[in-house]
Design a protein around this nucleic acid. Structure first.
Lengths: 250, 250
DNA sequence: AAATGTATATCGGAC
DNA sequence: GTCCGATGTACATTT
């Protein structure tokens, strides 16, 4: 998408040769190429998969990503990540699209029996997404107002390194005890509790054998099983959302 | 995609009214609709995001999913999951596509300044993907040949329930000790060790306070930190892949 | 390139 | 519906 003015080239029910050329040209020009048609899909790599004939929409992006979408689901039924090399050729009456990479070695093969439309889109997209309501927002909320966690909490570091990995927020409580804070932007299950536990254990070991380390999980809410795990391991929970709740007085 | 014969309807540089009608008709007919054009995107729900003007490809699936794809990345820059309600209308010279759902309440708003192509694809896709190299394959491998885990291992149950959740494989070793097996299809980090530890602790508690329970992690390999965690907690590791390695004598 | 943790993760299964 | 764990998770970040 490097041209100033967006442009589309599109063919309907093209011949195999025309399809191959249109896909190859689109890729060469750095366009986003779509193909709709009846195809089979084979994948071999981290796992392996086979998909029989059906009508699907294929996207080939200029960064080397390929997506095979059916009429259902948010996720592609098959794909190849950015950075892959594409190859397109005719085989018998079929058009074959191959996408491959190494590290890890993997290969996607889409074989089209019939192509109903092939399009190439060239445009420009300079804009970046701005996103809020993330874990980073939750961290900033606490750093801005540490009393949200508890009175007299003092943050000392973010991403503090321990032998078990980096702790989201490290600080001290009113009594000067070490506090490990694990942040989650949404309701959490057992995983998050185990993660917090690893950090607390590691920090206790890193500091001294007999130093008490508190662990506080911060999230909007926890599941029952996570709550039980927190209790079993002497960990604490503070309910907090990434962004302040909108007031009721609007 | 309910028609026997695949069909495409497509418009290039359509007017706003024609765009709105083409999108609405495609959705009504249960087609997979694509729109390429210059648009802004706003999302509000589990998080919130804003995306300025740029040329993008939008997919509207008959199951209610919406995807906004730029020319980069495997993932859509914005999306809405299956089950959403779509609405399309003109506002000034723009065409607006709204996609919303409740539980959780979230809303996606795509505002098109210019549309270069709108297409509706109707087809059929009865085929299911067959995938191999999954965790289920790894489990079956061990059930078929328990000695892959260790000599005289006896599987007793899969998905055995404990107070911490279901264990992948539960069995006994040669000495009659309880064994908890956690399976992973690929190289694992600290998460998997914590998960295994939760199950071992829970099962030990569920059975009796003084019963020894072995925990074995089965995966192709482990990271250094995970290996250290395994040692610290007296857990074991067996290297095994979901599918047998291809021999060297081919 | 490998490791680690987040995600508007998505998805499927169990309850 | 919620909960829980798998995923060819993808992705950014750091080492």
């Amino acid at each position: 998408m490097t041209t100033d003015r967006a442009a589309v080239t599109s063919l309907e029910e093209p011949s195999p040769d025309a399809t191959r050329d249109a896909i190859a040209d689109g890729i060469d020009r750095g366009a986003l190429v779509t193909v709709f048609g009846r195809c089979t899909v084979d994948y071999e790599g981290r796992a392996s998969s086979r998909l029989g004939a059906g009508d699907r929409l294929i996207l080939c992006k200029p960064d080397g990503a390929t997506l095979v979408h059916t009429d259902e689901g948010q996720q592609p039924v098959n794909w190849q990540p950015p950075g892959c090399e594409q190859e397109v050729y005719c085989d018998g009456g079929d058009v074959v699209l191959e996408s491959a990479r190494s590290t890890p070695e993997e290969r996607l093969l889409v074989r089209f029996r019939d192509v109903l439309q092939v399009s190439a889109f060239a445009g420009s997209d300079e804009t970046e997404l701005t996103l809020s309501g993330t874990e980073a927002d939750l961290r900033q909320r606490i750093l801005d107002e540490p009393s949200l966690l508890e009175p007299e909490f003092r943050p000392l570091a973010t991403e503090r390194d321990t032998s078990a990995g980096a702790v989201d927020i490290y600080g001290e409580d009113a009594a000067g005890r070490a506090v490990v804070v694990e942040l989650k932007r949404r309701r959490v299950g057992p995983d998050a509790v185990s993660q917090l536990r690893r950090y607390v254990d590691a920090l206790a070991g890193d500091l001294h054998a007999d130093v008490a380390v508190r662990g506080i999980l911060v999230a909007p809410s926890v599941t029952d099983r996570a709550d039980r795990l927190l209790s079993e391991h002497g960990l604490e929970f503070v309910s907090l959302e990434p962004t302040p709740e909108t007031g009721c007085d609007d």
